[in-house]
């Protein structure tokens, strides 16, 4: 799979058609995180977050001018303390997205997209001092709406792509224990009321990724900022997390702006 992802940027589907390379981005994300889960504590926890993510994008074969296919995955780890500094909370989460977007190329090198992804993500906040309710598990499986806007220009001889990506989980299902339910009871087999239908009214999240891609030809570098807000409310419990991360990434093979190859890129 990984080999395919690396090889694909250089493969041609049809000698007459422009190539549709897979643009693979590999990123490291470092920043701050705030979390509050009333299942664990009414207090807000703040700290650092580190993560790694990858995203693979490609113009879709059936309609390469207008359809873009995306697959992405990410893992994050958090280390936080509460405001008085008396307790520590650790967090970990992972997510996988696959989706399609409809693209419109606009004049003056602008591009906008709108679409949707299948989003599966899960994680946990672990409050180290708690006994029978030490963990707040967060899990979501559903459909997210996505939108993006990008514009590329040249600064000196360096092609640069500026892009803004928004992802909005919209309909799906998420996990939430009962108000006073312990994981021991769940372990015993009582799974009633754990899964909830999610929509913006009880599960509002938004992910915002602003990125500057510098295309050096054989490789491209990404510098970006990601804001990730997640909240859920069910069974009289509220969980909210917000993460601000600086992102640095690399795209092996570049994005094709520098080489001016005849490609149909998913990015512009």
């Amino acid at each position: 799979m990984l080999l395919w992802l690396f090889v694909m940027p250089f493969a041609l589907a049809n000698a007459e058609d422009p190539a549709r390379p897979v643009t693979g981005s590999y990123r490291l994300e470092i920043g701050g995180m705030n979390a509050r889960s009333t299942y664990l504590s009414p207090l807000k926890y703040s700290g650092t977050s580190v993560g790694a993510s990858g995203e693979w994008r490609k113009s879709f074969q059936k309609n390469p001018e207008n359809l873009v296919m995306t697959f992405s995955g990410a893992v994050n780890f958090e280390d936080m303390i509460n405001t008085p500094g008396s307790a520590r909370m650790l967090g970990a989460d992972a997510e996988f997205n696959w989706g399609m977007a409809y693209r419109t190329r606009l004049p003056k090198d602008f591009q906008i997209t709108a679409g949707g992804v299948v989003d599966i993500n899960g994680g946990a906040l672990y409050l180290t001092r708690n006994g029978n309710n030490p963990v707040s598990v967060n899990a979501w499986a559903g459909i997210d709406l996505t939108a993006s806007a990008s514009w590329h220009f040249t600064l000196g001889k360096l092609p640069i792509l500026v892009s803004e990506n928004v992802k909005l989980p919209t309909l799906g299902a998420f996990f939430c224990p009962g108000y006073g339910e312990t994981y021991y009871e769940i372990y015993l087999g009582n799974h009633k009321g754990l899964a909830h239908c999610g929509w913006w009214g009880n599960h509002f999240s938004i992910s915002n990724f602003l990125c500057l891609t510098l295309d050096f030809g054989r490789t491209a570098m990404e510098l970006g900022y990601r804001y990730d807000y997640r909240s859920s409310s069910a069974n009289n419990l509220v969980t909210r997390t917000s993460r601000n991360s600086f992102v640095i990434g690399v795209i092996p093979g570049g994005i094709g702006l520098k080489k001016k190859n005849n490609i149909n890129s998913a990015l512009y």
Binding site: P42, T83, A87, N133, G180
Partner: peptide
């Protein structure tokens, strides 16, 4: 009662029977 834990704004921890 199976005890639950929570916290106060000053950072003190509270434990109590919940289930």
């Amino acid at each position: 009662g199976l005890p639950f834990s929570s916290e106060l704004p000053n950072g003190w921890a509270i434990r109590f029977s919940a289930c």
